[in-house]
Design a protein around this nucleic acid. Structure first.
Length: 255
DNA sequence: ATGGTTGTTAAACAA
């Protein structure tokens, strides 16, 4: 079973890339973030023609999450207890007996800002939700754009990013609390090339210079971690014309 | 160097 995540930064613009990628990689599940589409505008027909069912939770202009899957996603959840939030950042669904929690974590803008406080409060509520889901589902994957680089290996210039947004200690501690629910970062279960990143700013030719961060993650429960045979970042779509600023992350499970 | 680029949406906001 192949499960992938990709922040597409506008599904309207990136639909051709997504369809090409589905056709080339044939994942069982592809979780998308930053679709930036209301549900009535979601390209469900084009995705169905590619052989994928989909569930989605979108809004105008910002945010938006979706799960594309070869088999019908079931028991979808878009809102969680204690978080009355119009921002569409969460989509949980069950595919082939695997519970998928797709997250577009708040960016946070700047350490100490209002958005930063919202990020930490949001992460706290979501951690409670994941704990709850973890108790109900043996096979659980939490994936998406976490907007947190787990540690300095995941940052091209740790000194420049020291205690900055995406890298601050409170953010990393919030991520650790999610991992401490018994989840593993699939990518780090395997030897990986040095300087592996999943996001590069559009500015300063950051991709060409590999000035990136690894902020897109696939976390798995023990039952799935045992079955995980590979986890890679596919940088190829980042080389295309008009790319997303994120690359897809792919995990393979022998299920 | 508080810069720079992209997306949505129409000047500003978010990332």
């Amino acid at each position: 079973m192949i499960i992938a995540t990709w922040n597409v930064n506008s599904l309207k613009v990136r639909l051709p890339h997504v369809l090409d990628w589905l056709s080339g990689h044939a994942p069982d599940v592809l979780a998308l973030q930053e679709t930036k589409l209301t549900d009535d505008a979601f390209p469900a027909d084009a995705i169905a023609e590619a052989g994928y069912r989909c569930v989605y939770a979108g809004q105008k202009t910002y945010n938006g999450v979706a799960i594309l899957a070869k088999h019908e996603p079931a028991d979808s959840v878009t809102d969680i207890p204690g978080l009355d939030d119009p921002q569409r950042r969460i989509l949980a669904s069950t595919v082939n007996g695997v519970r998928i929690i797709n997250l577009y974590v708040v960016n946070g803008s700047e350490v100490g800002s209002e958005k930063y406080a919202y990020k930490l409060a949001w992460l706290d509520k979501v951690t409670g939700f994941i704990a709850d889901e973890r108790g109900r589902h043996e096979r659980l994957v939490v994936l998406g754009d976490f907007n947190i680089a787990p540690d300095d290996r995941d940052v091209h210039d740790p000194e420049a990013w020291h205690e900055r947004i995406l890298c601050s200690t409170p953010e990393r501690e919030a991520l650790k609390r999610i991992l401490d629910l018994g989840l593993s970062d699939c990518f780090r279960r395997f030897d990986q090339p040095a300087e592996s990143y999943s996001w590069w700013d559009y500015r300063q030719a950051a991709f060409r210079r590999n000035m990136g961060l690894r902020i897109d993650l696939i976390l798995s429960s023990p039952a799935l971690t045992e079955a995980c045979t590979a986890c890679t970042i596919d940088v190829e779509p980042r080389r295309l014309e008009r790319p997303s600023d994120h690359a897809p992350v792919v995990a393979e499970f022998s299920l």
